[in-house]
Every structure is written in structure tokens, then in C-alpha cells.
Design a protein around this nucleic acid. Sequence first.
DNA 1: GTATAGTGTTCTAAAAAACTCAACGCTCGG
DNA 2: CCGAGCGTTGAGTTTTTTAGAACACTATAC
Lengths: 302, 302
Amino acid sequence: MKHLRLFEYIDAVVRAGSIRRASETLYITPSALDRRIQQVEEELGTQIFERHAKGMRLTAAGEIFLDYVRRHMADLDRVRSEIEGLKGLRKGHVAIVASQALALKFLPEQIRLFRSRYPGVSFSVRIADRGEALKSLIAFEADLAVVVFPKMSSEVMQLIMVAQPVVALMSALHPLAAQPTVRLSECLNYPLVLPDASLGVRELLQPILIRRTNKAQISAETNSFELMRGLLQDQRSIGFQIAIGTPDSLQESTIISRPIDERDVPAAPLICAQLRGRTLSVAAARFADQLTQQLDNMNLSV
Amino acid sequence: MKHLRLFEYIDAVVRAGSIRRASETLYITPSALDRRIQQVEEELGTQIFERHAKGMRLTAAGEIFLDYVRRHMADLDRVRSEIEGLKGLRKGHVAIVASQALALKFLPEQIRLFRSRYPGVSFSVRIADRGEALKSLIAFEADLAVVVFPKMSSEVMQLIMVAQPVVALMSALHPLAAQPTVRLSECLNYPLVLPDASLGVRELLQPILIRRTNKAQISAETNSFELMRGLLQDQRSIGFQIAIGTPDSLQESTIISRPIDERDVPAAPLICAQLRGRTLSVAAARFADQLTQQLDNMNLSV
DNA sequence: GTATAGTGTTCTAAAAAACTCAACGCTCGG
DNA sequence: CCGAGCGTTGAGTTTTTTAGAACACTATAC
């Protein structure tokens, strides 16, 4: 929409941190950008930005105004979506930020399912760690967050939570692959490939591993489950993941998962959340419905 | 603010009901107005207005969009107010819609009290009947409503309610003026000046009067308490009002009030309300605080 | 029926706003 | 002390918005 170009300008300047950098992403000149910001400040009767030698920082008034700007932009998206919704959700967009565990299987399946019913709805999915995911919600960059073991804040509203058991990942040719379930102590006999601190699973394992630190041999730490699966091809190493993020054993995968005995490792909370007080677009709200329903079913079957 | 001129245009067209009438209040030509509306409709991909021979009516999509427009105009007011609030509420505005009973004493006192603390805050007060008052809230024309015996809707949020006893009004020279309190049956011996159906007090009296319709002699019905007080100068007639709306007996008023026995007439609910889900401006919120506090004190002392 | 008064709309040109380009003054870090 | 980055300004250009008059349409009154 034409009339909120000004809002996009302000938002861009905040994100870029300076007029000149923002002007590049906006494809306009710094002078034009500067003038419009000055105009707003004049209309408000207050400085929105502190001018600094290396850029612009928001003032207290600017923080208030930025919040208004972002809410306003997100709200217009919702309005457009609702208007489209009058015609049966033919168009729409859902912006998701999610933990890595969901990138392999869960989200692709869910999006495929949703788009089979609503082909006109498009998706943008950003994979991020738990901290960044919630930040994205607050900055109105994402409609929904699906995150493993997040540290919740009061600004974020939890839509559903399911407990996800932690599983051990290994090559199909691994000695432990023959067992239906494994004990954590068995895993410690093999080299471990651990998720790093940015991932939720690690936070669950950490206190347990510390107690047995002399037994465990940590061969690698990574923030990429893809890399982890690659390392497991040595047929010796063992990795960890939550159940929902494991490769589908039906497909010809060389990596398999085995549940870890519940007594050894507690389940990981997986939550779906949105920004508190925000009204989601029709498309996002309906996708959230689908997610909560599917996750709920999953919860019951476990 | 410059960038929401478009919003004001749309709002004005809705209020005026036609482009030409709206263009007069906006001081622009109908053609300019028409073009910008068409531009919005093109950007939204939908008609916002139904074109009718005698004007424009909102479509379903238009209703959604108008709600967005009005919410955001009100929200910008709040944002500006909050920014001013950073400097100690030096400026601000509160728009009130209230029942007639409050126009004589209560609201003037409250506004005087508030402005003694915050001289920079201005007020606009519209006196309206119960139906119109709530409509004003919903149309974002007023921040707060103070109404006698309103029929609440789910869109409106009640901030406080106090029970207001109904009192009889009469000349200071009236036969009943000698008594500290009166019974309703005593009043029926005199000509009655009744508030009309648009006023809350009438709704309380109506079922009681119907039962004694043969005894009561109704000399006048009016929607103006001012007129009522004028009619009472005959030293015979009796009028009705809620306690908060009666003239101050300390001042040299020729009209006095006497409580009616509680067994005869139930108390009238007086409520202060705002639009549900709306965040008030700093000034309006603080005035609402004052109102609820004062009303609450009043409630305890009764 | 037909005139009429109201409506939305389109065409033109003019006014206003937004933007570009080039230059300036400033502050920081090497 | 200098250079790289920053925000800012002035003059000129482009785009957007508005004005004014004319047109097409539809209810309503006569």
C-alpha cells in the first residue's frame, strides 16, 4: 500500500541502523529518506532518532512510535487477509520462524497438507535458534513460532505445548540399532555428536551429561542437525534429537532413531506461539489451528 | 499527520454517506476524493464502497477496512499522547460522551479537578442519550462514556458501575420540601414532569408508574432536565432525576431534591465505559482513573 | 413520462509532494 | 591527521495529488 511507505522507511532505518544503509535496501537516496524522517519528527514535535556519528538510534519516543508502526503494518496485512478471507482464503501468507528440528520433516509436511487445502496461501519459513525465534515474533517479522524448549517471555503467547521425547540417532548399521530402545548409559560407550548450546535439546542433556562427564566422549558439537546426521555415517557415533525431528525411517535413510528410556532424559517441551495481543491474519490463524490440532493428536498418541 | 489523510478521507465519506458531501467537510473537490478511493480499492483488489444513486455504502470488505482505519487513527492519537506523556502529560485531549444528568454538576467538577492537575489537557464533551453514547464509543468519536442505565453491548467495556438513587425534584417552596425524604405515593398527588424515553431515569420509573397510571397526573414529558427544572418553578410539579445530577442545594437554587424511599424506586446504575480492546490515550486513561476513583468513593459514602 | 437534483466519474492542467544528484559539515578510528 | 562513514542541505526533476468543468447515470417529483 502506498500510504505506509513512510512506515517501511522508518522500519528500515531501525533495522539498518543508519539512513545510508537503509536507503540501499529501499532503493531510494539517503536525502529523500532523511527528509521524510525529519518530516515525521516535525509532525510529532519530537525527535524519533538520536543522531550518532555511526548511525541512528531510537529515542524513547521513537520506541513508542516504532511499536505503532510495526503493529500498524502487521495489522494491515491482517486486514487484507480478512478481506481475502471473505472470498474463501484464496490468497494469504504465513510467516513462520521455527527451530531446526522441525525443518526436516514436520514443517514441510504441515505446509504441504495446508496448501493442499488452500493452494493460494504462501509461506515463508525462517529457521532460527530459540532466542532469535521469539525476537522475530516481537519484531513482527513472523506470525508464528514453533520452538523447542524456548524461554518464554510475557510478550509471547503459547498456543499449545507438547512433550517431545529425546531420541538417539545413529547409523542403521550401528551396534545399538538392533535394540528397540536404548539407555543413555549405553550411548555413553560411543562417541557423541551433541547439539550445541543454541539448540533446545542440548539444554535438556546438559545437566545429565555433566554428572557423567568422565564417561562421555564428546566427538563433536554442532548447531546443525544436518551436519550431525552426516557425522553419524561413521556407524559408531551417536547423536540426539527430539522425536519429531528424526528422519522418516520408512524412507531409505541410513540414519535411524531409537527412543531413550524416559528415566534417563526428560521430554523436551515443543511449543507453538504467537505475539500476545496480536490478531493473526486469516491464513496464519488457520494454519495455527492446523498445527495445534496436529500436535495435539500427536500428544495423545504418545 | 500527513500520511493518514487518506484515512480521514475514507472516514469522512462513510460519515457523510457520499463523496460530494464528504468533499465539502474536507475542503477538497469530489474528483480528488473519488480518485483516492479508487486508488485504495485498486490496491486492495476489492470494492470498498457500493455505488448507489444517492451515495456510497460500505461493502463487507469496506466494513473491515473502516474498522482498521478508525482503530489506527485512534491508535495514533494514543501514541502521540504517550509520547507527550514522556514529558509529564503536558498536552493531551479527552473526548467524553455522557448522559444529560452529568452535565449540570458532576462532569464540570471532574474536569475542573483534572485540569487543576493537568492544565495542558483539553476536553470535548458531548451530551447524548444512552443509545448514541455507546455508538460514539464504537465509532471512535469518544474515548469515554459516562451513562445512566445503558444497555451494554459486548463491544463496550464497563470500567465502573455505581448505583444512583432516584430523587424527586421540586421547588424549595413545594409542600413536600419540608420532609427530608418522600414516598413515591406522596409525589403522585402532584403534577409530574417526567424525563422521556431517551433518558435512563424514565426506564426505571416506567414499570412503577404503569401500575399506578390512574393516580399519576403527568403534566409534561421532556428530554431536557433543564426544561424540567424550569417547569418545577410552579411550586406544584415534581420531577425526577438521579442524585448525582441534582443541583447543588448549597448554592442559591430554587430547586431542591429529596430522596425517594428505596422501597419505591430501585437505584439507577451509572456506568463509566470505554470501547473494549482499545488502548486509551494517556490523558484519557488518567481521567478514567480519576472518574472511577471518585465514583467509587461516592459509592462507599452512600 | 419527463424534468430535476442528486450522485459517481473522467478529462485536462496546475499545484504539491517526493525524489535525485551533488555537495557540505561532522565525528570517529586508524 | 586523514579518510571513511555518517546525517544534512540546496537546487532541479519526477511523480503524485488536486482543481475545475463536463459527462453519464439514477432515483424522485411533478
